[in-house]
């Protein structure tokens, strides 16, 4: 009877070593593949966001866009990133690849470059959006000054409305670049309010000279609102030039 041949200890160790080596290579390959995949996902997202940001900048400045399209593009641009967003930051376990393979290092740098532009465009978008939102708050008050002369009591209401608008404007808080517009608007609306008070006083007195002076004062006060347009044009032009510079 033949006894089965038992493998020697040496050949057993060899097999174990081979299996161990294979497992190591597989593990390493798996880690590399997972790390690469993570970088691929991170990069894809960052590059895609950067491309979207560039497209939104283009739409925001294009002469072919409507105002609504421009404002939507600025809103989208502002929302694409935030100062807290961490782009291109892989888990530490996969981050080591950058120090081992040059190609991986280059790829990571490319991702960071896309992220830097994305952040710069996002910041420019947020600044412009802030300006426009602040100015919108001023406009939301000024629209109340529109008078519907078909209403029988418009004359008495106009005075109260101007008072309220002046008070509301004085309570608004806006960013530094919109402050000159708010100051001008507050001053002009106060002038309208005061002109109405002078007009009402002169009307009560039935003093023709005072009445005509107050009426001219009212005309001047309403015409004076043009200065708010001038202030807004100047400040917004600056904000837009800054946006163009930051996004070029």
């Amino acid at each position: 009877m033949k006894m089965p041949v038992r493998p020697s200890k040496l050949s057993q160790n060899k097999r174990l070593l081979t299996i161990g080596g294979l497992l190591l290579v597989m593990g390493f390959t798996g880690m590399w593949a997972t790390g690469s995949e993570q970088w691929r996902t991170l990069s894809k997202d960052t590059v895609s966001r950067r491309n979207q940001a560039d497209a939104n900048v283009k739409a925001a400045l294009s002469s072919e866009s409507t105002r609504g399209e421009r404002l939507e593009a600025i809103d989208r641009l502002a929302a694409l990133s935030s100062p807290k967003t961490e782009h291109c930051k892989a888990d530490w376990w996969y981050g080591w690849q950058q120090s081992v393979w040059p190609a991986s290092r280059d790829a990571a740098e490319s991702c960071r470059s896309a992220a830097r532009r994305l952040m710069a465009l996002g910041e420019a978008g947020r600044d412009l959006k802030q300006y426009l939102d602040d100015e919108k708050a001023i406009i939301a008050q000024l629209v109340h000054l529109k008078i519907d002369s078909k209403q029988s009591k418009w004359q008495t209401q106009a005075s109260d409305i101007a008072d309220n608008v002046a008070d509301n404007l004085a309570k608004l808080t806006v960013s530094a670049s919109v402050k000159p517009v708010l100051t001008e608007a507050t001053t002009r609306v106060k002038a309208i309010s005061q002109a109405w008070q002078a007009f009402e006083a002169a009307s009560k007195k039935k003093d023709r000279t005072a009445y005509e002076k107050a009426l001219a004062g009212l005309d001047d006060a309403y015409a004076g609102l043009g200065a708010v347009t001038d202030a807004s044009d100047g400040q917004l032009k600056d904000a837009l030039e800054e946006f163009k510079k930051k996004t070029s």
Binding site: S63, R67, L236
Partner: peptide, 24 residues
């Protein structure tokens, strides 16, 4: 994996505030 170039953006040379704000 990584695209390095940024999209070229062509914009108008002048900006008109009225294109952005309803103030006027």
């Amino acid at each position: 994996l990584f695209a390095t170039s940024t999209t070229s953006v062509t914009v108008g040379s002048t900006v008109n505030p009225a294109d952005y704000s309803a103030m006027r």
